[in-house]
Write a protein that binds this DNA or RNA. Structure first.
Length: 904
RNA sequence: GGACAGCUAGCUCAGUUGGUUAGAGCGUUCGGUUCACAUCCGAAAGGUCACAGGUUCGAAUCCUGUGCUGUCCACCA
């Protein structure tokens, strides 16, 4: 016997273990079934999972379980990401805090730091694995991957080599987003901007006045730039020079005329600092101007700053202003100037643009073979979406995607950190015998020990590592390559892919599900790298979920515990099923949504309701001495069925049809709501209530089984646990059960309609009773339109009386009580509840006239639609049929309405 | 500056081809409840669907404009 309330804690662990040990999670390569594959977006191995991960796991598990039950070969590859900067940052800080070492990189060295990070990562991975299991995720643990696995490293090196060979990877001096705090550069996408109010100074610079928020970068400024059409500075010509007094003495300045200068801003004149500003760099490149470094990589001023050398920016700024003031070069200061400060999204260090030699991926070079053409990486990225090879849900993100590509610049892939895939490039620092070839970078997929040109063993590997997104961009396929093959360095990438059975069978993957916040970081890069490296798209559909927010719409963060929910705290009390449901229902793709305890509690109640409904069903079986396990699936067809049985069974068929269709369209929220209301309102509040008068155990069992099947992807634990009590003898675990199909023999529309009529009648009586303030003991007469319905309602009289809370009830065909009727119009039926002497005729007439007008308009519209030749030609047959039916019922209704109006 | 969303009950949100009385959960109020479930049952109150125009017999839904909120992209010295 089941316990009185569902206790998730005593069930979930046991059920998960049972699934895992049975091997259902493992995808079979040789099954011949249609594959359905998801690569789990690998969580960062930096600690714990949060609600964002929980959302992702819930959504993907629903996709996977649904596919599995539909008879597909479902594969869900789990894994973790080494998250280069994020992880290194966390560990360095940990060492600083726990061991008091101020500069761990310097004091411990590369080897030791890497060892520490590795240990930290392993710990995190263990935590993450257990947390994924707690959510009930049915992923294939035998295929678990990690972005730093040796086989993935091989893929990374292969792609690097291929790209280098194609000229897509190059090395160059460019302005990069340098983070002096973390001592590395970051990609454009990792830069965050924060609004800040800062003093905005204006200084005299020769005959001009120039403005700046950053006086500390101005030491070397020797170019004055203005718009060529600016009339105020007409007398100055491009290339003119002049001498002027500046911070540390006289400088010779050159005039540059460039259209990127906005004459409206400030004085319309500016000086440039090419080394520390992207826009200035571009101008300098255009006119081949000198570039000079002012600030070093630690954020301190270089000797060019004279007396300020070695000072940090913060310290130097006011002192420089002071000096300029003393020299009489100060003009004014605007204290309320608002501008954006660039921050590193990891660690929030202030970005100082610097010129550095870095590795880049060229996104514009047309060398990628795609669809029998030579395209640039940009063009390939655009093509796969334009052509419909990949669809994004919701589709508005396609627009954002294209917009992003239009603005995309070459991708800087090198990072000056230690944790990550080291750039597979070696330099010969030879012994004198070096040839010209040895001097350049040598790319190799395996550690290079000897220079192939001069034979020297004195080689040095590039110290930098690759952007973490470089390796995660290969995730859909690098996880599917055969790990034995990647150890064999004689094989080519193409060969490895061709010989990897998993890759051949399971790639491209079916759905890539992730948060919209990493559409550019990750999704776009996967498309770019995978199409290039394998010649195939990485996935067919992209499903983007929204961000979880607190009740007040704030972002959830650990630093602000107000409203923040930790999945690990919630699961023991409410259960993983409740948590899953609370995150899926009411959430539409691409939109942020709020989560709070009350919401989860609501779904905990639902899970408990389902539990108790099952308990009740089992109780009914016991009372009738029916063994639930002995009930055959097709038993219901041979049984005596009541009107309610038929109606519920029919509604269930409609539900199966509806739910299946919507799941295929990824409309998970709607499906969740449908299931919720069906279970609670139809199954529990109606059908089980009726069963108290007269129960049909085989039907109860059948309905319950079907509902458990339909609910399983959403709340796998409770459904699997209940399944054990109601499944037929020869059935196995629910997770392996096949998805319900519509049994047409049970789809009995007429019974369903009749039952609906009964329900509507009850609703109508209740409504009229409430409207008119009628006491339950007052006699109520229900007037209906045909003898047939009178008969139907009379057969259900007891049930109606009970549920409508009326003591005395009669039914009469229309026409017998026309004088004293208050009508309630419901969706498809009119029920007139008769209450002697209580009707306000004037009001009733007014209401009916309004109703009549509306109906006439509606009829006109439908008639026009049916009269439209194009509509008849183009619309599918069932739509036309529906319209015709609409017309028919509306006409009937109008006729009745007129009759009633006349009778008043 | 550019783009994309959102604005529906006190709160959080559904609402896919325009259709007859706009829904749910939570919260509030009232009533009930030994026999599946108080993690329950029944009911009520609460909405000019942001605003203004337009198309239509009919608009939360389509079009135009405005306002507010949010997000992303690009950035000006």
């Amino acid at each position: 016997m089941l316990s009185k309330a569902y206790d998730p804690q005593s069930v979930e662990g046991r059920i998960y273990q049972m699934w895992e040990e049975s091997g259902v999670f493992r995808a079979n390569r040789d099954s011949g079934k249609e594959p359905f594959v998801i690569s789990l977006p690998p969580p960062n191995a930096t600690g714990q999972l949060h609600l964002g991960h929980a959302v992702m796991l819930s959504l993907e598990d629903i996709f996977i379980r649904f596919a599995r039950m539909q008879g597909k070969e479902a594969l869900w590859v789990p894994g973790t990401d080494h998250a280069a900067i994020a992880t290194e940052n966390v560990v360095i800080r940990k060492i600083q805090d726990e061991e008091g070492i101020t500069d761990p990189r310097k004091e411990l060295g590369r080897e030791e730091i890497l060892k520490r990070i590795q240990a930290f990562v392993e710990e995190s991975q263990a935590t993450i694995r257990s947390q994924i299991r707690k959510m009930g995720s049915s992923c294939d643990w035998s295929r678990e991957a990690y972005t730093m696995d040796p086989s993935l490293n091989r893929c990374v090196n292969e792609v690097f080599k291929k790209m280098y060979g194609d000229g897509l990877i190059y090395r160059g001096h460019r302005i990069v987003n340098w983070d002096p705090k973390l001592q590395t550069n970051v990609s454009d996408d990792e830069v965050e901007r924060k609004e800040e109010t800062a003093p905005f100074y204006t200084f005299k610079y020769g005959p001009f006045a120039i403005s700046t928020a950053r006086p500390e970068t101005k030491f070397g400024d020797k170019y004055v730039v203005m718009h060529p059409d600016d009339k105020r500075y007409k007398k100055y010509k491009h290339g003119d020079t002049f001498e002027c007094e500046w911070i540390n003495g006289k400088v010779t300045a050159t005039i540059i005329k460039d259209t990127t200068v906005d004459p409206e801003f400030g004085t319309g004149v500016m000086t440039i600092t090419p080394w520390h500003d992207t826009a200035d760099f571009d101008i300098a490149e255009r006119y081949s101007l000198d570039k000079e470094q002012i600030i070093d990589f630690a954020g301190r001023l270089l000797p060019i700053a004279g007396e300020f050398t070695g000072m940090s920016i913060v310290d130097a700024r006011p002192k420089i202003v002071e000096k300029l003031r003393k020299k009489g070069l100060f003009v004014k200061v605007d204290e309320n100037y608002v501008h954006n400060v660039a921050l590193n999204s990891r660690g929030k260090g202030i970005i100082e643009p610097q010129i550095k030699e870095q590795w880049f991926i060229d996104v514009n070079k047309k060398v990628v073979a795609w669809k029998k053409k030579k395209m640039s990486l940009k063009e390939v990225m655009q093509d796969v979406i334009h052509s419909g090879d990949i669809t994004i849900i919701p589709d508005r993100f396609e627009k954002m995607y294209f917009h992003w590509i239009d603005n995309l610049r070459d991708w800087c892939i090198s990072r000056q950190i230690w944790w990550g895939h080291r750039i597979p490039v070696w330099y010969c620092i030879g012994d004198g015998a070096c040839t010209l070839e040895c001097k350049g970078p040598m790319v190799s997929v395996e550690p290079l020990e000897q220079c192939p040109h001069c034979g020297s063993t004195n080689l040095e590997q590039d110290p930098d590592t690759l952007d973490t997104w470089f390796s995660s961009a290969l995730w859909t396929w690098s996880t599917l390559v055969d790990r034995k093959l990647t150890d064999d360095f004689s094989r080519s990438l193409e060969d490895i892919l061709n010989q990897s059975p998993d890759f051949q069978r399971f790639h491209p993957t079916s759905v890539l599900e992730t948060g919209y916040d990493i559409l550019f970081f990750w999704v776009a890069r996967m498309i770019l790298m995978t199409t290039y490296a394998t010649g195939h798209i990485p996935f067919k559909t992209v499903y983007l979920h929204g961000m979880v927010r607190t009740r007040d719409g704030k972002k959830m963060s650990k630093s602000d515990p107000e409203g923040c929910i930790d999945p690990l705290e919630v699961i023991p009390t409410f259960g993983a099923d409740a948590l899953r449901l609370s995150m899926i229902v009411g959430q539409s793709p691409g939109h942020d949504f709020s989560l709070y305890k009350e919401k989860i509690a609501g779904y905990r109640n639902f899970v408990n309701k389902l539990w108790n409904a099952s308990r009740f069903v089992l109780l009914q079986c016991e009372n009738a001495s029916v063994d639930p396990h002995a009930v055959k699936t097709d038993a219901v067809e041979h049984h005596q069925l009541s009107l309610a049985d038929k109606a519920l069974l029919s509604a269930l068929q409609n539900l199966v049809e509806d739910v299946t269709e919507k799941l295929q369209q990824y409309r998970l929220s709607e499906v969740g709501e449908k299931l919720y209301s069906f279970v609670w309102e139809y199954f529990c509040d109606w059908y089980l209530e009726l069963s108290k008068d007269e129960a049909n155990p085989p039907v109860l069992i059948h309905i319950l089984r079907t509902l458990l099947q339909l609910l399983h992807p959403y709340c796998p634990f409770v459904t699997e646990e209940l399944w054990a009590s109601v499944k037929s003898k020869d059935a196995g675990m629910l997770i392996k059960e096949s998805w319900p199909t519509v049994v047409e023999a049970l789809q009995d529309q007429e019974s369903f309609d009749h039952f609906q009529r009964v329900i509507d009648t009850i609703t109508a009586i209740r409504k009229v009773r409430a409207d008119q303030g009628v006491a339950p003991d007052k006699k109520i007469a229900v007037v209906v339109h045909s003898e047939k319905w009178v008969e139907l309602l009379e057969s259900q009289q007891e049930h109606i009386r009970r549920l409508a809370r009326v003591e005395s009830l009669t039914f009469a065909p229309y026409g017998e009580h026309p004088e004293e009727v208050a009508s309630v119009f419901l969706q498809d039926i009119e029920v007139h509840v008769c209450l002697e002497g209580l009707i306000d005729k004037e009001k009733e007439r007014e209401r009916l006239t309004k109703e009549q007008e509306k109906l006439e308009g509606f009829l006109k519209g439908v008639q026009a639609k049916l009269g439209n030749k194009q509509f008849i030609k183009n619309a599918p047959a069932d739509v036309i049929q529906k319209e015709k039916e609409k017309l028919q019922t509306a006409m009937e209704k109008l006729q009745k309405l007129e009759e009633r109006l006349n009778s008043l």
